[in-house]
């Protein structure tokens, strides 16, 4: 550190009420000369070969993937410029004239999402409970879980897409598709929630001679209901997004409108629609999120009450 720097830093330390302030860097001044001194013997550094190999392998895969994209990297230079240009076209002066139509279509998307979520939750709660260990017979559990796993592995949109082509491209079939496509994940959440529920109440009902159905109703349901409600709301949040996507492939709603106006290249309208999608999604997330927090807090409070 040079003396000037020290002086500058010194200047930033406001002086005390009535005392002179020496520089905090002053002590360092004496230390800056290099004189060889004894170096403590160091244990050998552990080998990092595995980590290095893993890093090299990851790098190679990423490079290969990037090279395999067939993107002409020379054109990539214009991309930011073009994106900015389109962003200006979209958001500099969004076309609000079509807002009423957009809200109509938004309601259609929300309706699809909502009905789909209800269908999904209504089906997956009993199925998920049957698939939880200790509830249904083992063959049923294994079979159900396999079906859930398959539905989960195929992207929701593909399931919906296939269903839509079979049943026709209408908002109602869109809702149906959302309901069916969500069953895989939703049921998994249900059986995981049931399995992680405290076992005390289950044992109490069983000891009182309750059947499996009675255990489900009187021991498990009260314990997992808040969690399941929270998952149901989460399903709504997911469906809001997916319903817009289904619209893109023709099921109607805001997605269809967006897809159409993108094809017409009416960018000011596309900009308005994007704003609507983002705002609606964020507002829905906000509402759903706060309700979910309330439900979960309520559940916790009740848990505390029970232990008293």
């Amino acid at each position: 550190m040079s003396r000037r720097e020290v002086a500058q830093r010194h200047g930033e330390v406001a002086p005390g009420p009535d005392e002179p302030v020496p520089s905090p860097g002053a002590v360092e001044q004496t230390t800056v000369t290099s004189t060889p001194a004894s170096t403590p013997a160091l244990p050998p550094k552990p080998s990092r070969v595995t980590a290095t190999l893993a890093a090299v392998a990851t790098g190679a895969v990423v490079l290969a993937a990037t090279a395999g994209l067939n993107i002409s990297w020379t054109e990539l230079g214009d991309v930011p410029g073009r994106v900015v240009e389109y962003l200006l076209l979209m958001f500099a002066d969004p076309n609000w004239e079509k807002l009423p139509r957009a809200l109509f279509e938004t309601w259609r998307s929300i309706s699809m999402a909502w009905l789909g979520a209800i269908g999904c939750v209504v089906v997956s709660i009993p199925l998920g409970m049957l698939a939880a260990s200790g509830m249904g017979p083992a063959w049923l559990r294994v079979g159900l879980r396999a079906i859930f796993a398959v539905i989960r592995a195929v992207p929701e949109v593909i399931i919906a897409l296939v269903l839509l082509t079979v049943t026709g491209l209408t908002p109602f079939t869109g809702a149906l598709a959302l309901g069916i496509a969500g069953i895989g994940t939703q049921s998994k959440w249900v059986y995981e929630a049931v399995e992680s529920a405290p076992t005390g109440a289950t044992e109490a009902v069983r000891a009182a001679g309750g059947s499996t159905a009675e255990i489900a109703r009187w021991a498990i349901w009260p314990a997992v209901a808040p969690v399941l409600m929270s998952f149901a709301l989460y399903r709504c949040e997911i469906n809001i997004r997916t319903s817009a996507v289904l619209g893109l492939v023709g099921a109607g709603g805001i997605g269809s409108m967006l897809s159409n106006y993108t094809n017409y290249r009416e960018w000011d309208t596309v900009g308005m629609l994007l704003i609507v999608v983002v705002v609606i999604t964020m507002v829905f997330d906000l509402i759903s999120g706060s309700i979910r927090r309330r439900i979960m807090e309520g559940a916790r409070v009740r848990d505390v009450d029970r232990t008293r």
């Binding site: 997004r241 893109l248 997605g255 967006l258 897809s259 993108t262 290249r265 999608v277 997330d285």
Partner: peptide, 13 residues
Amino acid sequence: AVPDLVFATVLVA
């Protein structure tokens, strides 16, 4: 808040 395919649609355009 932007669904994945909506991004893709707009970016393709």
